[in-house]
Design a protein around this nucleic acid. Structure first.
Lengths: 227, 227
DNA sequence: CAGAATGATGAGCATTCATTGAAAAATGGG
DNA sequence: CCCATTTTTCAATGAATGCTCATCATTCTG
């Protein structure tokens, strides 16, 4: 499986990324500053580099430039939101892609797959419909139908539903949902997941009189296959 | 007859090839640098690409790699020196054949014939009409009709529409549109996609009172088949 | 059964985002 | 080189969405 180098000084973020990437089956290396990152990028045989622009010592752009002098390894830059000049400089020096922080982990995973030229794992073909009882979700068009009725969802509502359905028959914790459906920055006191579960219930459970999303008290939520 | 793209910065050589190829009955396009070459290779419907390795800006190997990300069009690489590493890199990134300069034109013609036969229209038929409800798009002539009414579009408008229609029933992100319809690696803050969607809507949706292009808030745009 | 923990809910505020008009910039034909 | 057309930028607007917070309801625990 591919080996990915994370160059990121904020340990919290680095750890979080490490966990998620390992969970996807990647081998992960971490460097906490630019010099270390440059060294590992060139010495280890990494298949992809995730490179924060704001780094102590050697900054990300410089690191990118120097990596490019010797290697064509794909580089995905992380940049603080609103810093367009950084973005431009990053791509100019040869980065393959960039993401503005904070971002949802799913998007980074998608971009990694693109950069590595990997197809999505067989387990979850993106384009086929997800069906739960009378409910049909079409990821390509992001549409949801109950029988022949279209259910109009907002972005977050849709993403929450898709995630729950992709993990059907498994209890999903609020933390897990925050990590995958919301931005990684999210932590601390929030009941935003509860609120969105409620929105979905209003639009689906209540409207059609079914029990789609169950609460598992003290643990999280679950969508079960109809039996 | 087949359409061939020549990506070559030395004008003398490009002209020479153009003359010879036209004499053989091929349609010829010329790009003088990597970026332009990449663009034309992806946007025009070319049947074969002749690609110089030494190019200003984006080099040939990179161009080749990026073409391969989206297209299976046959590629013949040209390299000035007898440089083995270039040769290997070229074939690695998916070139179909390779020639060292200088070469006899007859040999190139022979290789072109081989390449064209080998890959004869395996790709999707690009010339058939695309039909969405009452809307009919003819890629060959780049014309668009609503019932019997011709809709006159500018180049960008047409390309945006064709791309959306070719990806019907799939949400297409602004980024995706920027990459495919606009210049590759278009970045920075721009709402040019939104503006062009508006132009199309004025000329189609508004004029004929239909809902062709839907907005998927926070994600992109989509054209759905009428159901 | 009372109090504590956990989840559900309603309302309201803040932010983001798409749309739009207008104008600047680029392109291309004559 | 000029003019018309096309492409792109920019800023204002308002609506949709995302989120917080306070309160209410339910479940759990002792």
């Amino acid at each position: 499986m591919a080996k990915i180098l994370i160059v990121e000084d904020e340990l919290k973020i680095a750890r979080f990324l490490e966990l998620e990437l390992k969970h996807e089956g990647y081998e992960v290396l971490i460097a906490q500053d630019g010099r270390q990152g440059l060294e590992k990028a060139l010495k280890e045989m990494v298949d992809l580099v995730i490179l924060d622009i704001m780094l102590p010592g050697l900054n990300g752009i410089e690191v990118c430039r120097r990596i490019r002098m010797e290697s064509q390894v794909p580089i995905i830059m992380l940049t603080a939101k609103d810093d367009v000049s950084d973005k431009v400089a990053g791509l100019d020096t040869g980065a393959d892609d960039y993401m503005t922080k904070p971002f949802a982990i799913e998007e980074l995973l998608a971009r990694i797959r693109v950069a590595l030229n990997r197809k999505r794992s067989v387990a979850e073909p993106k384009n086929e419909s997800l069906i739960i009882g009378e409910l049909k979700i079409n990821p390509a068009s992001r549409t949801v139908f109950y029988k022949d009725d279209e259910i109009v969802l907002t972005k977050k509502e849709y993403e929450l539903l898709e995630y729950l359905v992709r993990n059907r028959n498994m209890v999903v914790s609020r933390e897990q949902l925050l990590n995958h459906v919301w931005d990684y920055e999210y932590f601390g006191d929030t009941n935003v997941v509860d609120v969105y579960v409620r929105y979905l219930r209003q639009k689906i459970d209540d409207k059609y009189g079914i029990l789609l999303i169950s609460t598992v008290r003290g643990v999280g939520y679950i969508i079960k296959d109809a039996q």
